[in-house]
Design a protein around this nucleic acid. Structure first.
Length: 473
RNA sequence: GGCGGCAUGGCCAAGUGGUAAGGCAAGGGAUUGCAAAUCCCUCAUCCCCAGUUCGAAUCUGGGUGCCGCCUCCA
């Protein structure tokens, strides 16, 4: 496939060309582990998984890194002065390290439930204090950063390209600033690399000072470059990360190394709920458990998210989730029908399968247009339902469906083909038994057998000329 | 105030100059012991207004609504 992606930095769709042939190195901004991520957060992580799966299938050697931020962020404007993690620790009357441990475990459980392939590294900020300190020292030595007491700030005027990613201009940032200016900084747009506060709970004694802790942006520069090199291929995050986070990462990384930092920046749009943003006051900040409580599988959510384009806002509604769940079920059903057709298919359809496969690939190549890719699958399904497929075409269609499953993650890890439960012969026996009961108009017995088969994932179709069955839903 | 983005049927969502993909839901009919599944049929002119064009959901201008960001700390 000839992949083309939209680059937030150039604001254009570009042909994908990794730094090193056959190899992809990518970094994803991960969660701040102070509180269980909500479904909106998982949109970004599912997108990262989509990239990962695509590159895996395309035969690239992938190195994927996602950070866990375990030194806090601000809760919101109202909670000034204290970071998210410390606030949560106080609220829950727990040690911050305990919070990190619990939330991280929850996060990994969620990823697993969503069918996300594990990244190769999940570095934590607090495990990389020396790397961050080294970066700060480099920036100070090279004149890109300055020290005030034991605080260290990046001088945005030392990097001419500051603002290129976000489109912000330093002068505008200054005039638009809503909050009071930190008098220590030479310019309001300068950002903290390293701070000091003797009263901080999470602090480190380093060459930078006795009571220091890192600024937010520095961790991603330090960890991405440690695991991926000074220059790497892809960096992703939510749209909220563009500024200031990624803008600052570029500045500090490129000034520290003198090399280009990231080739391709990709950002996912936010997930909205009921047409607006999620908010605690509306009670629509959902976690995976909220979906499960309503009878949905995390995989239904996965499908809802991935069949929408990552650069478009996606509106979450319960009705939409129900629609995604039904659609996924019908694909599962189709897989069962295809398995049957691989043995006793009829019709033609080679051309249609080829066409669908080409459309599927074309859509994905074009900046991951998963909507169109999924539509291609459904079009083939519709053709099959109307006209059937030859055995050979059914085999090819199964291959396409498996390919879609590899990339999008459609089906939960239930067995495919080798489904646990009844063997074909057993199914046939039960069906014969039910037919006998039906002939004798023993409806209770017939329905009981039907229920038994249904429970085993067997779908029966009572046709005028007999009973057909397939595995599915 | 600055920067960026979105607005397509009941719900979700592609399409970005050539006459509206796909999914879900809904209605009518066929079939059925009942049911499910399946089959047939029905279901949008693209937020509003004004332009450009032979032609616009797609371009331009102006509205309206929604979303992200604008660094004390992070």
């Amino acid at each position: 496939m000839e992949l083309r992606f939209y680059n937030s930095f150039s604001r254009q769709i570009e042909a994908f060309a990794p730094l090193e042939e056959g190899r992809v190195r990518m970094y994803h901004c991960g969660p701040t582990v102070y509180k269980r991520p909500h479904i909106g957060n998982y949109r970004a992580f599912l997108f990262a998984d989509l990239l990962r799966r695509l590159f895996d299938l395309e035969g690239y050697q992938v190195t994927q890194v996602m950070n866990l931020t375990d030194v806090g962020h601000l809760v919101d404007d109202a909670d000034d002065g204290e970071d998210k993690l410390l606030a949560e620790a106080r609220r829950a009357k727990l040690d911050p390290w305990k919070i990190v441990e619990q939330v991280s475990a929850q996060f990994f459980a969620d990823l697993d439930a969503l069918g996300v392939r594990p990244a190769h590294h999940y570095p934590k900020a607090t495990d990389h204090i020396p790397e961050m300190v080294r970066l700060v020292e480099l920036l100070v030595d090279s004149g890109h950063a300055y020290r005030v007491g034991d605080n260290y700030y990046f001088d945005v005027h030392a990097f001419a390209a500051y603002g290129r990613l976000s489109g912000n201009r330093i002068a505008e940032l200054e005039s638009g600033a809503r909050l009071e200016v930190n008098e220590e900084k030479r310019h309001p747009a300068d950002f903290a690399l390293w701070k000091s506060d003797p009263n901080h709970l999470m602090k480190w004694e380093t060459a930078l000072g006795p009571h220091g802790f890192p600024g937010w942006h520095i961790e991603c520069s330090a960890m991405s470059m440690k695991y991926l090199g000074d220059s790497f291929d892809i960096h992703t995050g939510g749209e909220d990360n563009v500024f200031p986070h990624h803008e600052c990462e570029i500045a500090q990384s490129e000034c520290a190394t003198g090399k280009p930092f990231v080739r391709l920046w990709m950002h996912t749009k936010f997930l909205q709920v009921d047409g607006g943003k999620m908010s605690k006051s509306l009670g629509n900040v959902y976690t995976l458990d909220d979906l499960i409580e309503r009878g949905f599988s995390p995989w239904d959510f996965r499908f809802l998210v991935l069949r929408g384009h990552y650069r478009t806002q996606l509106n979450f509604t319960w009705e939409a989730l129900r629609g995604a769940a039904e659609a996924r079920r019908s694909l599962l059903d189709w897989r069962g029908r295809l398995q049957a057709a691989e043995r006793n298919g009829h019709g033609q359809g080679q051309a249609e399968v080829r066409q669908a496969g080409a459309a599927f690939d074309r859509a994905l190549e074009d900046d991951l247009n998963t909507s169109e890719a999924v539509a291609a699958i459904f079009q083939l399904r519709n053709h099959f339902m109307h006209h059937g497929l030859s055995q050979q075409a059914a085999v090819a269609a199964m291959q396409l469906l498996a390919r879609a499953d590899e990339i999008l993650g459609l089906f939960e890890m239930t067995a495919d083909g080798a489904a646990p439960g009844l063997a074909d012969a057993e199914v046939e026996t039960l069906i014969a038994e039910r037919n006998l009961a039906r002939q004798e108009k023993d409806w209770a017995r017939a329905d009981q057998l039907r229920d038994q088969l249904h429970a085993a994932g067997i779908v029966l179709e009572d046709k005028f000329d007999g009973v057909r069955w397939h595995r599915g839903e």
